[in-house]
Computed example of a mutant assay.
Amino acid sequence: MFTGLVQTLGSLTPVEGDRLQITWDDTTPDWVFADLSLGDSVAVDGICLTVTHHWATGFFADASPETLERTSLRGIQGTARVNLEPSLRVGSKLGGHFVTGHIDGIGYLDSVAQTHDSWEMVFRVEDPRVSRYIVPKGSIAINGVSLTVADCDAQGTTFWVAVIPLTYAHTNLHALQPGDRVNLEGDVLGKYVEKFLRLAPHGSSAALQSLDAMTTMTQDSPITAAFLAEHGYG
């Protein structure tokens, strides 16, 4: 489990087969990976990878076929800059949101523009397995960075985030160009809510009807406070 608060930047290089070599920058504070051990989990661009071997400045990890299929790892040529975050310690501060490191799919940067107090980034999503969990003011992890969806279209296929200068400068988001791929993970709470409604007893038809209605909403019929109250969410 992670928070989506990136601790440092590093480099990822495919070694052989599905094996990956990850090293962190020289500027990384010693405490970030001070107690890294065999079998630990590290979020690499938001992807939960298991340490199979480690040394003073990095580690090896293996990527499963599912991970390669769902993430940006498959398209890496040479060495890539990646965001790194060690797993969350029990009792630590949760400054972002609960991030599992299990990527839902790929998104693409459409545009980025600097404002007086942030960087506005627009992303495009083609996979409905990803877009269904993108909602206005919801949480999302982009390359492992915990962000809030400022707004999105009705289907979640296009969404906007505002990235503060500190986050923009200290993650690999600043290096993205339009068309670049990013790893996306939707809020895990939304996934559980959806499954509970889908598996509700037959007597709970109202819950299922509510879910069906929400998943077929169009821009002309947005979810409103009145809609939620009408369907038992008030």
Rank of each mutant, 00 (worst) to 15 (best):
A226G: 04
A80R: 02
T57A: 09
M214H: 11
G78H: 11
D26F: 02
V193G: 06
T3E: 02
P178D: 08
R198G: 07
A229I: 11
V130I: 05
N83G: 06
L84E: 05
L12R: 06
D62W: 04
M217G: 15
D127G: 03
L20V: 04
P165N: 10
A213Q: 09
Q7A: 14
S64W: 09
P86D: 01
A80V: 13
D151W: 02
K195F: 07
T115F: 08
S131F: 00
G46M: 10
F227C: 00
R124P: 05
A43H: 01
G58P: 11
E126V: 03
W55A: 15
G17P: 05
G96F: 07
T23K: 07
E194C: 01
D26E: 11
F59A: 14
G46L: 03
G105H: 03
R89Q: 14
W24V: 06
Q7G: 06
T158C: 08
V6P: 03
Q77I: 09
M1Y: 14
T115E: 09
A226S: 14
D117N: 15
A113R: 09
G232K: 02
T115C: 01
Q219V: 13
V149Y: 00
L184G: 12
T79K: 08
K191S: 13
F196G: 13
N143C: 07
D62C: 04
N143L: 03
P178R: 06
L38F: 13
E66L: 10
N183Q: 12
G58S: 14
S111T: 12
P178S: 08
T216D: 01
D26H: 09
G46N: 13
G17E: 12
D151A: 11
P178I: 05
T100V: 10
E85F: 12
P128M: 01
V130A: 10
I103W: 01
P178L: 05
Q155G: 11
V135S: 02
V99S: 00
I134S: 00
F33V: 07
Q7I: 05
G101I: 11
D153Y: 00
Q209P: 00
Y133A: 12
H53G: 06
V32G: 10
T171E: 04
S146C: 12
L49Y: 06
V99C: 03
L94E: 09
V130Y: 10
P14R: 13
L49H: 10
G39V: 01
L176Y: 13
M217P: 03
A61Q: 02
A229W: 11
W24D: 05
W55M: 08
L147C: 13
P14Y: 06
A226H: 12
Y192F: 09
F227D: 03
V163H: 02
G105E: 09
Y108V: 07
S204P: 00
S92I: 01
P165V: 14
W24Y: 12
P65C: 14
R124F: 03
S118T: 08
D40V: 10
W24K: 05
V188D: 13
F159T: 03
A56R: 10
P136F: 08
N143S: 10
P128T: 01
D151N: 08
A162V: 05
M1L: 06
L176T: 15
Q177S: 15
K137V: 03
V99D: 01
T148W: 04
Q209D: 15
S37T: 07
T50R: 08
V163N: 02
A169W: 02
M214V: 15
G96R: 02
T167N: 04
E120I: 15
R74K: 15
V32K: 00
T158M: 07
K137R: 12
V161K: 07
I76G: 12
P86Q: 04
